[in-house]
Design a protein around this nucleic acid. Structure first.
Lengths: 336, 336
DNA sequence: GCTGGAATCGAAAACGTTTTCGACAGAGAA
DNA sequence: TTCTCTGTCGAAAACGTTTTCGATTCCAGC
C-alpha cells in the first residue's frame, strides 16, 4: 500500500507539504502542488482513512440500526426499504454506512448508542425503534446526532423522520369518499405512533361526515393474521362496511385473504385500501390500492438530517414527507 | 473519551503494560492485571478501534455490495434477504459490515474492489453480480477474499455461494410428478447462471420421462411482466401444459396474474411452482408453492467463507446449500 | 557467591495521517 | 540599507493503540 511518505520521498519534499497540497491548502506553491498531485495519481495513492480518522477525530461513518419488529428479519420488515435512500445520501456526501441489526443475540446486550460509542461512528439512524425498547431512554439522550425512521416514538433529542401519516390517511379516505363510500371502517394499529396518527385521521374524517361508529373500528398488530381475524369480525356484522381503511398493507392483505376465504369479494363486495405500498403490493390479487411512502426520500432526509446536525449543530425535531395515493384494483364504487 | 493512557496514569503503570494486560498476554502479573481490568471497567474504557486498526493493519470490517439488477432498488431485489445471515455472522465473529450499493451514480464509477481498497476493508461479499458487469474481471482477480451471492457468474478467485439449484428444481418437479402431472412446462431465465441450472434440471427431468417438448419452454427475465407474457403464450397453445415450473417467484406470480386475466384458474386449470420463496409469496392469491432458499444460511456461509479465508488462507471455490420445498396453494392434481 | 533463567514491567518505535509553528527567502516600503 | 510582510516549505508533535526489546528483580541451583 502506497503511503504519503512514498510520494514525499520520490519528490524530495516533506510529508506535511504533500498532505497540504493534496488537501487544497493555500500555503504550497502552484508548481509544486501540481507535481505532487501528478505523482499521487501516478502512484495510485489513496489516503488511508484509518490514519486520517485517528487524527481528525471524525470517522465519516454512520451507524444504521435495523430493528426487527417481530422476528421476521428482512422478510416482513418494511424498514429495509429506507436503506436505498440512506445509501444514496451516504454516497453523495461521502460517508460510509455500517449496518447493525438486533436479530442477533449478542449485540443486543448493548445499547445502540453504546455500540456507536465503541465503533466511533459520527451519527446514527435507527429504523423501527419501538416505544417499549429497553434502550429507548439511551437513544433519546444520545450525545451524537440520531434520526429515527419508521418508529413508534417521537420526542427527545432525536429527529423524527416520517411520512405525513395524517395527510396520507386523508388521501386514502378521500379516495373512498369520491368512489361513493358512506360506510368506511378502519383496521388500526393503535400501539404505534404512526398507527395512532392514521387512526386519528380516520376518526376526524368519520366525525366530519357523521359516520363515526365504534363498531367500525378494529385493532390489529400490523400482521396479515390480524387482518384475517378482522375480516371475519367485519364479515359477521349485520351492517357491514362497504370499505375498510387498513393502517398497513400487511393488514390490508390479511383482510383480502380473510374475505376471500369467507366468500366476500374484493373489491366487488368491499373495498380495501392499505398504507405503505410494500414491495409486491401490486402483485397480490387484487392489486392493492394504497398510500405509498416515499421511502427513498425518507431515508435520504434522515441521512441529511444527522449530517447537517453534525456540520452545523442545528437539530430539527421532525421532518415530514408527503405520501401519495396509488390506486390499483382493491377499491371500487359501493354496490347500490 | 477515556484512553489507555488514562488508565495507565491512574495506576502509575505504562501504557504498554495496560495494553498487554487487556489483551490477555502472559507477561503481566496476575495482581496487576486484575487491577488494570478493574479500573478499565470503572472508567468505562473502550479501546479505540481506529487506533487499533492503524497498527494491526486489519480493519475487522467487511464490505457488502448490493448490486441492483434492474433499477428497482430494495423493492424487487431478492438480494437483500441475505443481509440477515451476513449480519448474524458479522455479529458472531465481531466484524463490522459496511454497506454499498450501485444504485447511486457516483460510486459506480469505481470498481468494487477499488472501493474496498480505499476503504481498507478486509474482505468483501458481493450480492447480485451480473455476468456482464463492467468490473467482473476486477472482482475475479481481487487481492482480498471475496464471496459471491445470488450471482450469475462463477469461477475466478471468488467463492461462489448459492442454493443447490439443480436439487431445488428437482424438488419442485418431483412434487408436480407426485401430483400426477405429465405435461409440465418451464419458464426459464436463461441469461443467468442459476437460471440455467434450474432449466437443466427441468430438461433432465423431462427427458427422463420422455416429455421433453420445445414448445414447453418459454424465456423470461425474472420480472412479473415476463411471466404475464408467458402466460398468454401458454394459454394460446392447443395442448396446454398442466403445470409450469418457473425459475423465479416473481415470474411465477406473473404467470398467475396473467392466467387470472385470461380466465384460466390456478391451481384448478394449471399448477404453478416458483423458486426463491420471496417475502409475501405466501400472501399472493393463491399462495405460491415454491422452493425456498435458505437465505439466512447462505449469507452466513458467505461471511464464514471470507473470514475463514482471511484466517487460514484456504479458499473454497463453491458452497452449495440445500433448498427445501414449501407447498402452498398454487399446485393441485391435474384434471383428468 | 556466581550463574542462569523465569517472571514482570517500561521505553520506545511504529502505523499514516493532519496541523501547528517556525524558518527562510524574496519583495516592497521606509 | 534596514525593516516588515507575504509566500512557501519543513520539522515535529499529535492521535491511541500494539509490539518488540531490553532492563530489572528474584529465586533456584551449583
Amino acid at each position: 500500500m502506497v503511503t504519503i511518505k512514498d510520494i514525499a520521498r520520490t519528490l524530495g519534499v516533506s510529508v506535511g507539504t504533500v498532505s497540504k497540497a493534496l488537501n487544497g491548502r493555500d500555503d504550497v506553491g502552484d508548481e509544486l502542488r501540481a507535481r505532487i498531485i501528478d505523482t499521487a495519481r501516478e502512484l495510485r495513492y489513496e489516503p488511508d482513512p484509518i490514519a486520517r480518522r485517528l487524527v481528525t477525530k471524525r470517522s465519516r461513518t454512520l451507524g444504521v440500526f435495523m430493528l426487527d419488529r417481530q422476528g421476521f428479519g428482512v422478510r416482513r420488515n418494511f424498514g429495509w426499504l429506507f436503506l436505498d435512500g440512506l445509501l444514496h445520501g451516504a454516497a453523495a456526501r461521502d460517508y460510509d454506512l455500517v449496518l447493525f441489526s438486533n436479530t442477533d443475540d449478542t449485540r443486543y446486550e448493548r445499547s445502540y448508542i453504546d455500540i456507536c460509542r465503541s465503533r466511533r461512528v459520527d451519527a446514527a439512524v435507527i429504523v423501527g425503534l419501538r416505544g417499549d425498547d429497553r434502550y429507548l431512554e439511551d437513544v433519546l439522550n444520545a450525545p451524537i446526532p440520531v434520526a429515527l425512521i419508521d418508529t413508534e416514538v417521537s420526542g427527545g433529542s432525536a429527529t423524527f423522520v416520517s411520512s405525513d401519516n395524517r395527510a396520507g390517511a386523508a388521501l386514502a379516505l378521500e379516495h373512498l369518499a369520491a368512489l361513493g363510500h358512506q360506510k368506511v371502517a378502519t383496521l388500526r394499529a393503535p400501539f404505534s405512533y404512526p398507527g395512532r396518527l392514521r387512526y386519528e385521521a380516520w376518526a376526524e374524517f368519520a366525525a366530519a361526515r357523521g359516520s363515526f361508529r365504534d363498531d367500525y373500528i378494529r385493532d390489529g398488530d400490523f400482521t396479515p393474521e390480524s387482518g384475517m381475524a378482522a375480516a371475519a369480525a367485519f364479515a359477521s356484522m349485520k351492517d357491514m362496511p362497504t370499505a375498510i381503511f387498513a393502517a398497513s398493507d400487511l393488514m390490508a392483505i390479511g383482510l383480502i385473504r380473510g374475505f376471500e376465504k369467507l366468500g366476500v369479494r374484493v373489491p366487488e363486495d368491499v373495498s380495501i385500501v392499505g398504507f405503505d405500498d410494500i414491495p409486491n403490493a401490486e402483485l397480490v390479487g387484487p392489486a392493492l390500492t394504497t398510500v405509498a411512502q416515499d421511502t427513498m426520500a425518507i431515508g435520504r432526509a434522515a441521512l441529511d438530517a444527522v449530517l447537517d446536525e453534525l456540520d452545523s449543530g442545528a437539530r430539527r425535531a421532525e421532518i415530514l414527507l408527503e405520501p401519495r395515493l396509488v390506486v390499483r384494483q382493491s377499491c371500487a364504487a359501493p354496490r347500490t
